[in-house]
């Protein structure tokens, strides 16, 4: 098992993006997925960083793919998607509709916002040329195990959401703009004020969700750490880490040591790295996604 780093979910400025990928080149991860995943309005502000980021990861011997948007609606977004398939790099589709642009026989990856819930869908994607599939975060271990086996038979590497606030929903409406009494078209890029997203609590103060523009994420940091052994036994080939603010290299190192069996109490180390965070593994444990299972200790 190894580590994949997914696309940056949040609206980071160019300097932060550059620093992130420079650091990631030195981190113990096998591959990275780069691209605007959430809102096409953000892309002009940081797309100049993409070639350098690809170069930095490739020079460090890591695999690189480019991500599509999660929800493709506008003509401009459709053109941008089509252009990705012309770069020569593998494309990770985040919206099933992106397959319309896939050149015949070209290999591709599938991100966690594409609905791969069963063997029939996985096998169909494999026949179309899928090489890697990151499963939707809401799947329980029983489904993960079956899909990992089907992936091995079909020659598809199956990944599981390993670390980060889980992507729960995508909308036509921008909730960040709505929080500022604005519409999406006049958002003034307020999501850029919150590099880990904007917290949403219940009225009685319970941390609940995270708003990130048109995307809604969980508030707890979803982690697969309590399930590493079971995932490995099931044949899962990688954990996916989602970029966040802070010392991401140190975070990746905890997961790398856990995969190598060299970290006896990985959850304790993780808690030490993120003392403010709450963690969840409910989806994998077959519970509500926001919950933390007893296995997490």
């Amino acid at each position: 098992m190894d580590l994949t780093v997914g696309p940056i979910a949040f609206f980071w400025d160019a300097a932060r993006v550059r620093a992130f990928y420079a650091g990631l080149a030195r981190a113990p991860v096998a591959r990275g997925v780069i691209g605007e995943w959430v809102c096409s309005k953000r892309l002009p502000f940081w797309q100049g960083e993409i070639p350098g980021a690809v170069e930095a990861l490739a020079q460090a011997g890591k695999e690189v793919a480019l991500s599509t948007l999660t929800l493709i609606t506008l003509r401009r977004e459709r053109r941008q998607t089509e252009d990705l398939f012309g770069t020569g790099l593998p494309v990770e589709i985040a919206d099933m509709g992106a397959l319309k642009y896939l050149p015949e026989g070209a290999p591709f990856w599938v991100g966690p916002t594409v609905n791969v819930y069963n063997e029939g869908t996985l096998e169909w994607l494999a026949r179309r040329g899928a090489r890697r599939v990151c499963l939707p975060p809401e799947l329980p271990m029983a489904s993960v195990a079956r899909l990992a086996r089907a992936g091995q038979d079909a020659g598809v590497a199956v990944e599981v959401w390993g670390h980060g606030r889980a992507p729960l929903a995508i909308s036509g409406r921008c909730y960040h703009a709505r929080l500022h009494d604005r519409a999406k078209d006049s958002c003034q890029f307020v999501c850029g004020d919150d590099p880990d997203g904007r917290n949403v609590d219940t009225l009685d103060g319970q941390p609940f969700l995270t708003v990130n523009g048109v995307q809604t994420l969980g508030r707890a940091v979803t982690t697969a750490l309590p399930h590493v052994a079971a995932l490995r036994d099931a044949g899962v080939s990688a954990l996916r880490l989602s970029p966040q603010v802070g010392d991401f290299g140190a975070l990746a190192a905890v997961y790398a040591r856990a995969l190598a069996g060299a970290e006896p109490a990985p959850m304790d180390v993780l808690r030490g790295l993120m003392p403010e965070a709450s963690f969840a593994d409910g989806f994998l444990a077959g519970m509500a996604g926001a919950q933390l299972s007893p296995e997490a200790g």
């Binding site: 809401e138 995508i170 969700l209």
Partner: peptide
């Protein structure tokens, strides 16, 4: 639905049960 349908796990995040599954 205010979210794109079939692409929402808010319900299973809170309850373990979702529209998709």
């Amino acid at each position: 639905c205010v979210m794109a349908e079939g692409r929402c796990s808010l319900s299973s995040y809170a309850t373990g049960l979702s529209p998709n599954m």
